[in-house]
């Protein structure tokens, strides 16, 4: 990891995750019959050198720079300069993932209709620092949009939550 400059290390971890996924994919492929695995295996084994090449472009090494120029006509420094430089803390990202995860969990447990206004309200109030009135206004409009569009107009039975399936009628 020392070869990779610090600002590129998150990318390296992302790439490593992809590499591990591909390795798992290759391993899983061997549980299928030859006809079923031939093509997936070809794809899997092609992926590995490509990922390794990409790893090299992240390094400061000469060979890495050469690969980068070969594939994109740019050195990795030039790419760094053009990249989006927004500060993205892992903590900040995890918090957003958590919000989205909770939204999906909420939908799973209680269904779309109760969770929609709660989520919109909470997000606007606590992440956006909007007034209670404004937040309620948006929450209710979104709920109305979804309810009228899906339940009334499209005759859709929106998911009512796993709790309703267990305890409801």
């Amino acid at each position: 990891m020392k070869l990779i400059p610090e600002h590129r290390q998150p990318t390296a971890w992302f790439l490593l995750a992809i590499l591990l996924t591909i390795v798992a994919f290759i391993a899983l492929s061997y549980t299928y019959k030859p006809n079923d695995r031939a093509f997936p295996l070809m794809v899997g084994y092609t992926a590995i050198p490509i990922i390794l090449l990409d790893f090299l472009t992240l390094t400061k090494t000469k060979i890495g720079q050469k690969i980068s120029v070969f594939f994109s006509a740019k050195t990795s420094e030039q790419i760094d300069q053009e990249a989006d430089t927004t500060e993205r803390g892992l903590g900040k990202e995890l918090v957003v993932f958590l919000w989205m995860g909770l939204l999906v969990l909420g939908i799973y447990l209680f269904g779309f209709l109760p969770i929609t206004p709660v989520f919109v309200f909470c997000w606007m109030k606590y992440r956006g620092a909007y007034s209670v009135r404004m937040s309620i206004y948006s929450a209710v409009s979104t709920l109305a949009f979804i309810y009228i569009l899906f339940e009334v107009v499209l005759q859709y039975e929106l998911y009512a939550g796993v709790l309703m399936e267990i305890f409801g009628t």
Partner: peptide, 26 residues
């Protein structure tokens, strides 16, 4: 602002949708 836009889109969509589908009970 956006909610107004969404409400507007919704209204347009509903007008179109409602004219196509009759309301039904299940």
């Amino acid at each position: 602002m956006l909610s107004r836009v969404i409400t507007g889109t919704a209204a347009a969509a509903l007008a179109v949708g409602a004219s196509i589908l009759p309301a039904q009970a299940k």
